[in-house]
Design a binder for these strands. Structure first.
Lengths: 237, 237
DNA sequence: CGGAAAGTTGAATGAGCTCAAATGGCGTGG
DNA sequence: CCACGCCATTTGAGCTCATTCAACTTTCCG
């Protein structure tokens, strides 16, 4: 039932893995789903953890990150509501997790024992297929981010991030002035884009001075000129 | 039979998707497998292609790349013998390919109609599970490369590439002096590592002058000091 | 050999980083 | 309601590392 509810929520975004199954097929899995809440900054998965975790994110935003020997953090991906966490069938054996998964905002999710998820997937190929499909899509997306990180200028990275966030926020392009709320601090943006806080800030100011965006305060961004923003983002992508 | 043969070859490396199935189960798929050879530089998949291609690589090396509007090429991944090309079940509909896939060396592979691969996977969950497992592993690997590209210095990128290539070549660490043959030109290394040809060359020279590696000519590299090489690679990974 | 492609080396430029200080927003406590 | 302190963000100045542009050397093949 917890699972069923979460599914209906996730289903709205058309992303929940469980959305491919009828409610009654989910009963065995739903029975062992645990509803959890995470505070901002709380860690769901530590890199190196042996115990595999599987979960569906319902509300909030999480980061997949890695801390290098020099102590610098790199965010290699974000997880949004509807996204699935975990690696069932990864390598046959339960491999230790390669990355930390941490809540950037208050998060609610529905967590399952990995073994039970695997059993459900064996019984319901449609669910496994949905996970494969999504994983392949994610792979393509990460490769695209890789190519941006390899070559793009600081301005293009920042402009690209704002564009993608606006897209994620499900905003109409037809609006005269779009206002979005960035889900990340400057520091988190820097970790995601492979820049420093100062450089991120400078590029934001640059876009503001050029009249492309407005910064009314907090983490809000007004998009005045979407075309110019997209153009800045594609400079060297 | 073509497929059967290729499987035995790939199976040696323990990577072929078909390796998880008994030979007789493969008969229907094998019947429509086509053996192909690609010359160096030949393209298997163009970005934007609607017709999905599925194939197993038997010999040679391929690159997954993207050319940005400025004409710069970025290599987002390499494909080695035993690797699988293609995105069955991706997004439900046949999505256009997001990247080019091009032969870096002479390549031989075994190609299948995507629809047939999908049908085989529906019939044989073990094969689909193997693809999922491998895709999840690849996702982790790409994320690791992402974090290196985000922060690592030019020296660390080059040293890391040499280390990984030595690993891929299946070389014993116990040897006194290991000699490997880099599969990529300086230009290709630059595209892979997000650097310029000149910078790659300078870092190679630097490692040589430090006594860490030797450059006996061609694309050969002698690894004199694996520990120092690994240390250079992890500086800011 | 000889020509073309690949690789190396040098000098100057510049984008982004580091270090440092100023500004602004916001909750707490008087 | 205001003063204070904390934290995030912005702005400034100098520096570093990788790039750019250019010349030179080596390797590869016909």
């Amino acid at each position: 039932m917890v699972f069923g509810n979460s599914c209906k929520q996730c289903g709205v975004r058309g992303q929940a893995l469980c959305g491919v199954l009828a409610d009654e097929e989910l009963a065995p899995l739903a029975a062992c789903g645990v509803q959890r809440s995470l505070a901002r900054g709380e860690t769901l998965v530590h890199a190196g953890d042996k115990a595999p975790i599987c979960a569906n994110i319902q509300r909030g935003l999480m980061k997949i990150s890695h801390i290098n020997p020099a102590g610098q953090e790199v965010i290699v991906g974000l997880l949004w509501p509807g996204d699935f966490v975990g690696t069932p069938f990864a390598g046959g054996q339960p491999l230790p997790a390669t990355h930390d998964i941490v809540a950037l905002t208050p998060v609610s999710l529905c967590q399952f024992p990995q073994a039970r998820v695997e059993r459900t997937m064996v019984a319901h190929p449609a669910m496994e297929r949905a996970l494969l499909s999504r994983t392949l899509a994610e792979l393509g997306a990460v490769r695209t981010r890789l190519s941006r990180l390899a070559r793009a200028t600081a301005l293009a990275r920042v402009a690209g991030f704002i564009t993608e966030t606006a897209h994620r926020s499900g905003v109409d392009d037809g609006e005269t002035v779009t206002i979005i709320e960035l889900p990340l601090s400057r520091g988190e943006m820097a970790d995601l884009l492979g820049l420093t806080i100062e450089t991120v800030s400078r590029q934001m100011t640059r876009l503001k001075n050029a009249g492309v965006i407005g910064l009314p305060g907090g983490r809000r961004v007004e998009i005045h000129d979407p075309d110019a923003l997209a153009e800045a983002a594609e400079e060297l992508v």
